[in-house]
């Protein structure tokens, strides 16, 4: 479903610095891949490359037969909007839109509002956000609630691929558990999931775990995860 072949990416800080090179990865439908690695290794950048937010320097990224980096800007946007769901550590909800409006936001210009609202309501129900919250502003939600709303937003387009960048980074254990539960259910519903995390428990949920370190991506065994994470912190 998602195939990365020999990705190389450098960023310019004073001089060009290579973040990673020769990165290859395969992700199938219904599979969950966790990525760990020290801060600044380039995990977020890698996710951005996959989603076509940033361009890669070399290599190919193929999503469902589409070569992401050969598309135009607008086509990449369309791929993100129609096929990818994003979940961030800091939720990234619009502060002046209600919960419902935030959920339907990605497709707000594509589909009818009633249709989207109905879908949003069912998604919110799935992630455990009740009707009483629909018209609240994000500022009136707790962190866990915000993240669940953000997950509902990521699902509004029935994405094939869900990309999570430290989805539990700002959550306490209870909320983390809820989010993990939701993601787990999604995996069973045949969504492919990539999760970048610093959290051992979250990482262990993955079918495979990779570490991005020293410019390259390597698979690590489930039992090594704790050591790796401790090394990095």
């Amino acid at each position: 479903m998602l195939t990365l072949t020999n990705i190389k990416k450098s960023v310019s800080q004073h001089t060009d610095v290579v973040l990673f090179r020769n990165i290859s990865l395969q992700l199938r439908v219904g599979e969950w891949v966790s990525i760990v690695g020290p801060s600044g290794a380039g995990k977020t950048t890698l996710l951005n490359c996959i989603a076509g937010i940033q361009g890669g320097d070399q290599g190919s990224i193929e999503l469902d037969g589409m070569e992401i980096h050969q598309l135009t800007n607008d086509e990449r946007s369309n791929v993100r909007r129609l096929h990818i769901g994003f979940v961030f550590q800091d939720f990234k909800l619009l502060p002046y839109y209600s919960v419902l409006e935030n959920v339907i936001l990605p497709l707000a210009r594509d589909k009818k509002k009633e249709q989207l609202t109905a879908k949003a309501k069912s998604l919110l129900e799935q992630v455990g956000i009740g009707e009483g919250y629909y018209h609240r502003l994000p500022s009136a939600l707790s962190g866990g609630e915000k993240q669940r709303v953000a997950i509902a937003r990521a699902l509004i387009n029935d994405p094939k691929l869900i990309i999570c960048d430290e989805p539990t980074g700002n959550l306490d254990n209870d909320n983390k558990g809820q989010v993990l539960h939701i993601l787990h259910t999604l995996k069973q519903k045949e969504h492919a999931i990539i999760v970048v995390t610093h959290d051992e428990e979250v990482a262990r949920e993955g079918d495979r775990i990779y570490e991005l370190k020293n410019h390259s991506l390597n698979e690590v065994g489930v039992k090594d995860v704790r050591d790796k994470l401790e090394e990095n912190s």
């Binding site: 937010i53 800007n73 607008d74 946007s77 369309n78 993100r80 909007r81 619009l94 936001l105 990605p106």
Partner: peptide, 15 residues
Amino acid sequence: DEFHMFFVVGWTEKA
């Protein structure tokens, strides 16, 4: 950040 979020969730620049 707001505009970036719009971009990330897949809005085209025109939108």
